[in-house]
Every structure is written in C-alpha cells, then in structure tokens.
Design a protein around this nucleic acid. Structure first.
Lengths: 239, 239
DNA sequence: CAGTGGTCTAGACCACCGC
DNA sequence: CGGTGGTCTAGACCACTGC
C-alpha cells in the first residue's frame, strides 16, 4: 500500500474543494486554526498542506491577512526546469525516434569542456555523437563528453544503447539529478548546426549542459542542438 | 532591527562550519537530535535549517541513513528562473544602458497575443516598442502588449519612463511576480531580429513572455529580442 | 485592538536503512 | 535490531495587517 501523509491528503482535499467551487479564485480561506480543526489535524500539518499549494501557485498566503485562492496557471508545455534526457524530450514533443546515428571515440577534452567538468585541460574523454531522426528527418544532434576518469572503459565493455542517462546510471551506479544548462543560439558556421538546417523555417537552439550526480560532482558535458520548429522550451520565472 | 529567525541563524552557522572545514564534502553530519541539542534549538527548528540547505543543494539528506555535506555548485551566471526586467538584465550583463528608442501606440491585439493573455482576439492594447543600446550599439529590442482593459489610459495620463515592471506596479498597484517564458530562436526574416544583426558573430534569442500578478492574472505580453553575444541565459535543471 | 499567519517547542510515533 | 530521518501533535508566543 502506498500510504500518503496526512498533509498530502489534506492538500488534495483542498484542491478538490477548490475544483468543486466551494472556494473560488480570489476568495479567502477560513483561518488555519479553523481549517485544522475541520480536517482533524494539527495546525502545523494543515500548514504543510498550505505550503505545498502555495509553492504550486494555487494559494496566496499573506501574513497577518489571510490565505487566498488564486487561479491556477496553465501547465507548462515542455518545462526546461525538469531535467530529462534527449530521448524523453523527443517523446515529449510527440515524436517517435526512428534512428540514432552514432560515432564513438576517445579524444582529449577541449578546454571549454574541461573547465566546466573541473578536470585538466586535454584530459582524455569518451566522445559520443548522435543524430536523432523523426519522420525521416534529423531533429536533434548531440555531442557528449564523458571523462575517462569517470566512465573508465565502460564503453568498451558494454555496448551502448538507449538513453545515455540510464546507461550511465545503471553501469556506474550513480544518479544524475541536476544539470546546469546554458541556452544559446549557435552560429550558422557551426558544422553541427548545419546538419539540422534543411528547411528555411528551421532555426536551431543549442543547449550546453553539465550533468551532476547527487553529490554535485560533474559527470559529463553535453551539446544538444535541437530544432526549434520541432521542440519548444518553456520556463516559469518568479521573483 | 532585522531579526533573523532561529532556523535561519542555524542555517548560517552550518554554512560557516562547512566553510571552515569542520564538515567537508562527502562527510556525514551528526544526527538531527544531537545537532539540535548542540544548537540549543528543537529538532524541528534544526530540520528547517536543513531543509533550506538541501533546497540550495548544499546538503544531501537520506532517509534512514543520514545527512551529508556536498560540494556547492557554482552560482548560476544569469539565471533565467529569476524574473527580472529588461533593464535589470542589461545591468546584469555588465552594460550601461545608454538610450532607449520608443514607439508607443494603441492597436488591436494579434491573435497569438490575445490567446496568451486570455482576452478577446482583436481587443485593443497599448503596444510599447523599445530598442536598448549599450556601447553605442543596439543590444536588445522589446515589444510589449498591454491590454487597455488592464492599463486603461495610463500611458496618456502619465509619461512612461524607466522600467516597465516598476511603471506598471507603481501606477496600477499590482505586483508582477511570475512570468511564463518561451525561449525561441527567431527567423532571419523577422524584422525585429534583423535590427540587432549587425555583426557576423551575432545571434539573437527571442523570449516570449506572459507576465502575471500575484493572483495569476495575465497582465501583459512581451517579445524580447536579445543578442546572444551580449547576454547569456542559464538554468539549473533537476529531476 | 482583534485576527491573521510565522516561528518554535518537547515529545511521540512511524518509515527506512544497514548490520 | 538500533540508529537515522519523516511526520504529527497541542500548545505557546511573536509579527504583521486592517480597522
């Protein structure tokens, strides 16, 4: 059984009440003390539920005033804040990945990459390059730099397939939980970029990403060229 | 006096201990009960401090195991997650805004904009267009759509100057706290984009943003064309 | 001032992990 | 099993807001 915490249960009940129109956007909720009694929980437990809903942007809490229902914002289409692998992003875009052309070799790390991975410049890395197709057209090109100090001879021992994230996680027993991403527009001179520019309405976005494990150790570096006529990129910003 | 909460104080103390090398990356902290006693606070208060540091990515908490110090990730250069006005972004890039060419007029809202603002297509809006210069060159071009149903005749009554966010906040007594942002690469045919493409190494990124107030009501829509050789855009993603 | 949310407490019990 | 973090409680007091 997957028991849910009390605060989680209360949270869901509040959402239901809002959706049923018991409390409407703009209206004030009864005080925390009253609500806690009504749900037969302690005030702190009720407050935990409130905090979650506030973080999700469904309630507005004003100190000394009250707690108010607000309209939920539309869900974000393809949210950049959530880390996902290339394959997942393709599926999220509603496409079926049909082929993945691969080149795989070891070579010294370029300076820019070495700096971001915190390793010596020129240190050996396994470079994995892939082109992803959908509907018979290239939609994405990615280059991954995996330092040998991290992956060892993994790619010699085990044939690579599927998701790089899962491959690395399963065979190195690490979890990749964070990434620092720089969003850029590549130059037209960029060879990698050019391979995606088949149509006049196509533009390409380049994500430069450092992937970290649970202990914030940089694991590998990625360049992801993605067609902007295929993929979309959204963020919810706040002050 | 700006008194800080106990949990905040404890949090800062823990950071100090880490920075002083009392606890190093990878090491386990003493149990919550011990630490709470040591700081003369209740366990819950200590846990509040822990939660903050976990959210900041400085501690890793494992249920049933312990709490561990991890290396802090480098601070994010110009973080897209934090909402800031155009002027602020220019200052963040280390530039001094020198001039702002403006056009200001009312016109019916284009369909795409109306949809995102949740208003009738063709509804009247004040359209504000600006080019920002730095070092004698254009670095950014922005177009803002402010529905008349929101701003009324504000722009007739009060001369516009400075930050649009502040202008709107001060004169309409609302707070702009969130924005949904789509990150795109404009086509080269785009007239607005072309005005920024003066150098061959210049590329341009286009942010399409809906700005919301505290109650999640859409206030206005923005198109921000920004030179990628001047501005950089970063996000920290997580699973 | 009265009423709201924000912080803190001491103690209890539960859920998870490694040995 | 013992030790860790996760949840919950009842009650106290503080900080903020609006009237």
């Amino acid at each position: 059984m997957n028991t849910v915490s009390k605060s989680m249960y209360v949270k869901q009940q509040i959402v239901k009440l809002i959706e049923q129109g018991v409390y409407n956007a703009g209206e004030q909720l009864p005080s925390e003390i009253q609500m806690a009694k009504r749900f037969h929980v302690s005030r702190e437990t009720f407050r935990d539920a409130i905090k979650m809903l506030e973080a999700e942007g469904r309630l507005l809490v004003k100190h000394g005033v009250g707690t108010f229902v607000i309209d939920p914002l539309p869900p974000i289409a393809s949210n950049l804040e959530r880390l996902s692998g290339s394959g997942e992003m393709i599926r999220l875009a509603g496409l079926t990945e049909s082929e993945s052309l691969i080149s795989l070799a070891n070579s010294p790390c370029p300076d820019e990459v070495a700096v971001k991975l915190g390793i010596r410049s020129g240190e050996e890395a396994t470079v994995l390059q892939r082109i992803r197709n959908a509907n018979g057209e290239p939609v994405m090109l990615s280059v991954n730099y995996l330092p040998v100090s991290v992956v060892g001879d993994l790619f010699d021992r085990v044939p690579f397939s599927g998701s790089l994230l899962h491959f690395v996680e399963n065979h190195l027993s690490v979890k990749i939980v964070k990434a620092d991403t720089e969003i850029t527009v590549p130059l037209h001179i960029d060879r990698n970029c050019q391979q995606l520019l088949l149509h006049p309405q196509t533009t390409v976005l380049l994500l430069k990403q450092v992937h970290y494990d649970e202990l914030n150790r940089p694991l590998f570096y990625s360049l992801d060229y993605m067609r902007n006529d295929i993929f979309s990129f959204h963020i919810r910003r706040s002050r």
